[in-house]
Amino acid sequence: MNIPYVVEEREDTGLINSKLGIWIFLASEVMLFGGLFSAYIFLRMAALPGDFERWASELSVPMATVNTVVLISSSVSMVMAWASLKMKDFSKYKMYLGITIFCSFVFLTIKYFEYSGKFAHDIYPSSNTFMAIYFTLTGLHVLHIIGGLVVMLYFYFPISHKMWDKQPEQFTNRIEVFGLYWHFVDLVWIFLFPVLYLL
């Protein structure tokens, strides 16, 4: 069984299968987070005036700012990893992917301290609808980071490198497609940061 357009693009659509697939997947992710964002708006409209602002002031803006920088850097290094593969430079690819992995660990660590700081002050998802939506949205985002991390570790360690030796183009495509996912996760955070911490 040979499935066409795994590596080269179909002429009339200009796409490979996996790239179209990931865009459709991301469309569904937009709807998932879109549903949660609209829940946020709905709850905020229903809340007592000033309630959301008061609870939002409990969150740590510096920590979130650092995390924003960390995630944006990881997006840049992800692009660099893909670009290195395009230039057939595998060792550079490993370096940049390593940086991306490191960044996502940093993000998770900071997030861990943020969460545990809240729990230490007896602030839980059950405290208030703002905290409920805060923990749900960021928790789901963290799950996306962890999912991405698992995939990156797979691409980092040698089990996946056989493919680079045999089918370098397909391996490059995989990194590109994964990169699209990673940028999306980054983008979600770019929305979460102002909505939850600043507004």
Partner: peptide, 24 residues
Amino acid sequence: VLAFPPLEAAAVLQLMDRVAGTSF
């Protein structure tokens, strides 16, 4: 693809209501 995710979101919220004690 486009209609199911909001239900997934809703299911997550209801699960939070049941398990984590939130009040969505």
